[in-house]
Design a protein around this nucleic acid. Structure first.
Length: 403
DNA sequence: AGCACA
């Protein structure tokens, strides 16, 4: 019955190198933790946004005495520990190491935790998550689990905030559906949205209208954006009614549907520039020039040759590049399509901009993180100034970011 | 304001 000297008060846990911090401001970032804790010692690991409210954190010091220093200092200080003006309560954690997050060398974690909000969140399959995140590189593993309500935000590994307005009209059950052509036929069924309303006829080809095109949108830029959701087979850019439109062909409807719903209303560049409005095209297979500044066919076997070289002389099929007779597909088949209905009036990139966004986020297009210059040139392309968006060398000045 | 993914 008696605890024989083990008087375990609530406030006197056994010391640990790991401190548990609570009552942090919402979505407190690691840098704020480090600011608070580093005067007391070397921080080897942190984990923030813990708990249902994302307002708890763990900080692991290199040495136990450093953690004790901090805990005892604030236990007796007249000035409480604060982050963003909020009092932070500090105790020893009941664990002795911080799992996950960062390693000692500020190495970003390679595992992302994504929280999906909404009543249809359960319909979001692993395949869809895989599609979305494949936009930014090879996805090694995906796992899902149930948890309490969270936040409709995704955090990428460099801390940029971006936001997909995802709606998933289909029931994805086939794990290999996006890349298996033989499975396509099964998915040409007319689509009914989760709320029961009929959608326009789906297609594997998307028609994109580019609004407020203050900056050049090249085939390469579109390829980067739309490749986020699967293999892009063909792209064609053309002018229509004084505006710029593009057709983007995926191998299957499913991929196009995911891309359409994810991209619709988003801007390629921060500040509302190059806003994309998407609808389904009537086309199913574009007949485009294999390589021109307005079109690209990525399905030609040695297309990688072109992507690694800007010289048309490398191009083996001169019958396509010669005449300059213009595209061989027919944009006027789109003529009966109504212009896009105006999309959301707010841009996610602006909605979620906040003071914690690092400076480089403002210097790069923010809506699609794939549009960072480093990534676009690193993929398969040599750097091309023409492809640069805001900040690129082909533009004399910075875009007037409003913010 | 009270301990983290299955």
């Amino acid at each position: 019955m008696s605890t024989s000297g083990q008087h375990q008060f609530r406030y006197t846990q056994t010391p640990s190198k790991v401190l548990h911090l609570r009552n942090l401001p919402w979505e407190c970032i690691e840098e704020e933790l480090v600011e608070l804790c580093k005067p007391f010692g070397k921080i080897v690991n942190t984990r923030c946004n813990v708990g249902a409210n994302h307002n708890q954190a763990f900080v692991e010091f290199a040495d136990l005495n450093q953690a004790i220093n901090m805990a005892t200092y604030f236990a007796s200080s007249s000035e409480p520990a604060q982050v963003r003006g909020k009092t932070v309560y500090i105790q020893y954690s009941n664990r002795h190491e911080v799992v996950n997050n960062k390693g000692p060398g500020d190495v970003p974690g390679n595992v992302l935790l994504a929280t999906i909000e909404g009543v249809e969140a359960g319909d979001v399959s692993i395949d869809v998550i895989h599609l979305v995140f494949s936009a930014f590189g090879f996805v090694h593993k995906v796992a899902t689990f149930e948890k309490a309500a969270g936040f409709q935000m995704l955090y990428n590994h460099v801390g940029l905030h971006f936001h997909f307005n995802l709606k998933f009209p289909l029931d994805y059950t086939n794990p290999y559906l996006p890349v298996n052509p033989s499975a396509i036929e099964g998915f040409v069924q007319p689509a009914v949205g989760p709320d029961g309303k009929i959608k326009e006829p789906e297609s594997n080809v998307l028609l994109a209208s580019i609004e407020n095109m203050q900056y050049v949108v090249t085939v390469d830029v579109l390829h980067t954006v739309f490749s986020a959701f699967g293999t892009v087979q063909k792209i064609a850019i053309f002018e229509k009614n004084g505006g710029t439109q593009a057709l983007i062909q995926y191998p299957d409807i499913t991929t196009a549907a995911v891309a359409k719903d994810a991209i619709e209303g988003h801007c390629i560049y921060d500040g509302g520039y190059c806003k994309l409005h998407l609808s389904y095209s009537r086309h199913t297979d574009l007949n485009v020039k294999a390589f021109s500044d307005k079109s690209r066919d990525y399905t030609i076997p040695n297309s990688t040759v072109w992507q690694n070289s800007q010289t048309a002389s490398m191009f083996p099929g001169n019958e396509f590049s010669g005449g300059g007779a213009g595209p061989t597909w027919y944009p006027n088949t789109q003529a009966d399509r109504p212009p896009f209905v105006s999309g959301p009036s707010t841009f996610p990139g602006q909605t979620y901009s906040q003071s914690s966004v690092p400076a480089y986020a403002a210097a790069a297009p923010a809506d699609f993180s794939v549009m960072q210059p480093g990534q676009i040139s690193g993929a398969s392309q040599p750097p091309r100034q023409q492809n640069m968006g805001p900040g690129g060398a082909s533009h004399p000045g910075q875009p007037p970011y409003n913010g």
